[in-house]
Each structure stands twice: as structure tokens, then as C-alpha cells.
Computed example of a mutant assay.
Amino acid sequence: MNKQDLVDAIAAQTGTSKALAAETLDALPGTITATVTKGDTVQLIGFGAFSTGARVARVGRNPSTGAEIQIPAAKTVKFTAGKAFKDAVNAS
């Protein structure tokens, strides 16, 4: 499914215009990004939750040379699938 297919499906399911469905879909990633960047969690009941996590600094290895390298600590994005989403995927 590509973006246009998703817009068509949203418009058909909600009974709105394709233009409004596309505008809403375009606003979604920016809104989620802005909220998660602030440190808040975005929870979509039945689908899942987007949040931030932390990776600690660690020592890794360069696969080409085998030399040790320092990997700095970093923030990461986490997605936790909701129960309904997991159940739907496992049922198919």
C-alpha cells in the first residue's frame, strides 16, 4: 500500500474528501515527531505508542579492521505495538 492508497482508504472509511484525508495524513508525522521530541509519548489506542529511549555509551568493533571504537550514548525512538495491532497481525 502506498500513500495514495492509504489516502483513498481513509477517505472511504471516514466519508471525507481525499484532499482532507491527504492533508490530515501529511500533518500526522510532524505532529508525532514534535511531541516525541519533547519527551512525551504518543499513544494511539489499538495501534501502539511512540516514545523515546536511551542507549548507553558502549565499545564496539569495526567489522573491517576489528579495531575497538567508542559508540557514544544516544536517544532513540521506540515503537511499542498495541495489543489489538499484535492480535490482528498474529490472526492473519
Rank of each mutant, 00 (worst) to 15 (best):
D40A: 13
K38I: 06
Q13W: 13
K38C: 03
G46W: 15
L6A: 03
V89S: 10
N62Y: 08
S51W: 01
P29L: 10
K3T: 09
T80G: 14
A74Q: 11
I69Y: 02
K83I: 10
V7T: 02
M1D: 05
T14P: 04
G30T: 11
S92A: 13
T37R: 13
A57Y: 04
T41Q: 14
Q13K: 15
Q13S: 15
I69T: 02
K78F: 00
T80Y: 00
G46H: 15
A74R: 15
N2G: 15
G15L: 06
G46T: 15
I45C: 05
L20P: 00
G30Q: 06
D26P: 07
A22T: 00
F47S: 06
T41R: 12
T35N: 09
R55K: 14
F47E: 06
K78C: 00
V36I: 12
A74M: 11
V59P: 00
A49E: 03
Q4T: 14
A81L: 11
M1V: 15
P72R: 12
R58K: 13
Q70V: 07
T52W: 00
I71Y: 12
T76Y: 07
A84I: 02
A49R: 05
T52F: 01
S17Q: 04
L44D: 03
L28E: 03
E23P: 02
D40W: 12
M1F: 10
G66T: 02
A81M: 14
R58E: 00
A91H: 07
T31P: 00
I69H: 02
L25T: 09
G82K: 10
G46R: 13
I69M: 10
T80C: 02
A27V: 01
T37D: 08
L44W: 11
L20W: 00
M1G: 13
N62M: 08
D40I: 04
N90Y: 08
A81Y: 05
A27C: 07
Q70S: 14
T14L: 12
Q13L: 09
A91I: 00
F47H: 09
D5W: 01
Q43H: 11
V77R: 05
T24A: 15
D5I: 01
R55A: 04
K3W: 00
Q13A: 15
T33D: 09
A84R: 05
G48K: 07
G39V: 10
T41S: 14
L28Y: 02
R58Y: 05
V59T: 15
D40P: 04
I10C: 02
N62G: 11
Q13E: 13
K75C: 04
G39P: 03
L28W: 06
G53D: 08
V56A: 15
G48E: 09
N90S: 14
N90T: 12
T16W: 01
A54M: 07
V36Q: 07
